[in-house]
Design a protein around this nucleic acid. Structure first.
Lengths: 351, 351
DNA sequence: CGATATCCTGTGCGCGTTCACACGATGAAC
DNA sequence: GTTCATCGTGTGAACGCGCACAGGATATCG
């Protein structure tokens, strides 16, 4: 009586047994309409809410899913997180998050253990790094697990964006504009996405018979893009650069600007992600769009399937990215490029 | 036997009662060292993990906190989220997130209800809008609640950054550079932060005896900043602009650039937030830094205090922001500004 | 050696819910 | 009027754990 009302309180008020209340709550049918309404009225009057802990105890189902992610403000993981939470809510699950400073096996293992103790029914791992996937197999304690942007070799079910295809599209776009080759500012080497983008870039160059220039790499930050840009600005042949994400592209633009290399007249730049600010860079950035909301939805759907069916459908969902052309890329011919740049004002804003 | 081992399994293996196992687990003392080790060995051997649902049922404590936030990729809420999760983990709590498309009373109420059903012990509401604070009072069902960046009038415990002080610092900085007045591109009118920044800006102008120019406002996006910038570029007197966040400042810079208004030589621009990319804008952005990690820590500490002590300490934590001067602001004298801008290259990068 | 204090361990119950089953009432069929 | 199915509802037992209390073992002292 003191705390929250329990099922028996409702039952007493409605003049029925607790079992009937349970039937009403779980819409099990087999309850007369009149008593049903009486029970509902009692529930309303007492402000009764079922105790999920008790329910979880007896059913063994917590209706909670775990989400392991890095504490990064990078656009991708965050957008994916929201997509997952929204999908989870609609599917009737709670989401318990565990953030990591870094995706190393011990940290991931610890997070998984934490979530396992909380009796989550499944876990989505936003871990775009190579290292943890092995650890996961051993730490997984039989909990259904879906990886997002990870696990290339492991047989973990995973949802990924086709990074290589995106990188390829970006590179081919630049080559088609007449550039002899394309430089690449890669992400950190231990990020799978970074690796896949490098691979896609290499493939596109090879197929076009273009020379593969030395690879630069950064750590996703604008700062590292800036540093790469300082190097690139000194290389006259660097007329086309593909940066592995938009933030690095931003730093790149900044460095090129400081060194007096005009974009896109002298140097064309392509990014990756299509963050919301990309259309407002100087100049508006040509980049590769990823649908993270879709990633969230698909990964959750896959996890729920796994949780319910228990069959390791070992499926792999691949989502296609899309090149968005704005004003940071132009044909290699200086005349035309300059004319185009001065003529187009503000047309880079999205619809 | 079939599923997870229970406490009785451990007890049987160790040759003690389940109660002794419980004592070992909760380090209640009163257990001989030898039996203690025997129990621990049994736990290890069986891979036993206490069932939190059962524990929650009997103790009434879920060790879970709720976090209500908007599904925005805005820097502030995200950085705060991570800060909270980290602090929660260290304090021994799980974090269950509920994201909202918009912070209106019904949505917040629904999220709170959801979290209440999950038996969270407390809730942190990242709701920088005015509207929901009233709804919270009624929906709060007695759950301890802490607001972040919200609830100016309500007596809800809250953790906030002193937005007005930040806006004031930004405005005074511009005035001190010789600008006759400062234009402001505000955030959405229903955001408390936006309101506070407008107030701080107004106050600073009033104290300096400067004229208050017409207020422009956007929706935090670079796009809206761009649109505001298109307007401002046509106003010759607009030599100093304070944008309510960095993204809008980015759009603003883009618009000014397109219209041929040089920054900072002709127009000085200040942002707010100090997102990591701000140092790599063109030019590097002078902005107001907010310590969101600190916000997360303090709000969690406040909530835990509330959960444990149950006394509505109705405290209010205010965190001071800090002006970071980079290269988007300059003295109003054209000669000196131009010289300074061409001389300083790359010095805007953070240490 | 016995009494008392101290330490350690076990028993039983309750938490709020679901599940398996039993029960009574009602009506139809013979 | 008896039998049987059907429907609606109640009863009792789990689920895994913590708490209060009982009780046995051991130590301390007279």
């Amino acid at each position: 009586m003191s705390g929250r009302p329990a099922m028996t309180d409702v039952a007493r008020l409605a003049g029925v047994s607790h079992q009937t209340v349970s039937r009403v709550l779980n819409s099990f049918g087999g309850v007369r309409q009149t008593t049903r309404l009486r029970v509902l009225a009692a529930i309303e009057e007492l402000g009764y809410r079922p105790n999920l802990a008790a329910r979880a105890l007896v059913t063994g189902r917590s209706h909670t899913l775990g989400l392991v992610t890095m504490d990064t403000t990078l656009y991708g993981p965050i957008a994916t997180l929201y997509g997952i939470e929204r999908a989870a809510r609609e599917a009737g699950y709670f989401v318990s998050v565990a953030t990591l400073r870094s995706i190393d096996p011990p940290s991931v293992g610890e997070a998984l253990t934490r979530l396992a103790e909380q009796a989550v029914e499944g876990v989505i791992l936003i871990a775009p790094l190579a290292s943890p996937t092995d650890a996961v197999a051993t730490m997984g304690r039989g909990i259904p697990l879906v990886a997002v942007e990870g696990a290339p070799d492991s047989d973990l079910p995973a949802v990924t964006v086709d990074q290589a295809a995106g990188a390829r599209a970006a590179t081919e776009h630049l080559l088609s504009l007449g550039h002899e080759t394309v430089f690449h500012v890669a992400g950190p080497g231990d990020w799978l996405e970074a690796q896949a983008r490098v691979a896609g870039w290499r493939r596109a160059l090879a197929e076009a018979g273009a020379e593969v220039p030395p690879l630069l790499s950064g750590d996703w930050t604008a700062r590292s893009g800036f540093e790469a840009g300082q190097t690139l600005a000194r290389i006259p042949e660097a007329t086309a650069v593909f940066a592995a994400n938009d933030d690095m592209a931003l730093g790149l633009l900044r460095a090129l600007h400081e060194r007096g290399r005009r974009v896109p007249e002298e140097v064309s730049v392509v990014g990756f992600d299509d963050i919301s600010a990309a259309a407002y860079f100087t100049p508006p950035l040509t980049t590769v769009h990823q649908d993270f909301d879709e990633v969230g939805r698909r990964s959750l759907a896959l996890l729920v399937e796994l949780v319910l069916a228990r069959k390791p459908s070992a499926e792999r969902v691949v989502i296609a990215p899309e090149l968005v052309v704005r004003q940071s890329t132009a044909s290699r011919t200086p005349r035309r490029a300059a004319a185009r740049a001065s003529g187009a004002v503000g047309s880079g804003a999205p619809g």
